[in-house]
């Protein structure tokens, strides 16, 4: 079992601390896509961290679409730490989606 090697994992305490600023920063630094993975909804150790993440990602997706960046470059999914095979599937799927979209327009600027 292996997840795609072109995925860089950044561990955080809770998906609720992934601020939109961080996602934007990562995109500006050349990432072609960002996958936010949190615990299952309703199972947050911090009560509502992943609910916040869900709202933030939904908002950021709409803002990205408005500013001409494909919202598909950002994806959110809910997995528990015991679901390694699902993580591999989600990661592989996401990489395939990003590959279909091509390099990020933020990256190819002069």
């Amino acid at each position: 079992m292996q997840y795609p090697p072109n995925l860089r994992v950044v561990r955080v305490m809770c998906s609720g601390m992934v601020s939109p600023d961080l996602i934007l920063r990562v995109l500006s630094k050349g990432a072609d896509g960002v996958l936010v993975v949190g615990c299952h909804l309703g199972e947050c150790h911090y009560l509502e961290g992943n609910l916040m993440a869900a709202k933030r990602v939904a908002m950021l997706k709409k803002l990205l679409a408005f500013s001409g960046i494909d919202p598909g470059r950002l994806r959110v999914d809910w997995l528990s730490s015991a679901e390694a095979p699902t993580f591999v599937r989600v990661a592989t799927e996401f990489i395939e989606e990003i590959r279909a979209l091509g390099p990020s327009p933020l990256r190819v600027k002069a």
């Binding site: 939109p20 934007l24 908002m59 803002l63 990205l64 500013s67």
Partner: peptide, 8 residues
Amino acid sequence: VFHLTRAI
């Protein structure tokens, strides 16, 4: 990204 950060 500078302006999108401010927008968010």
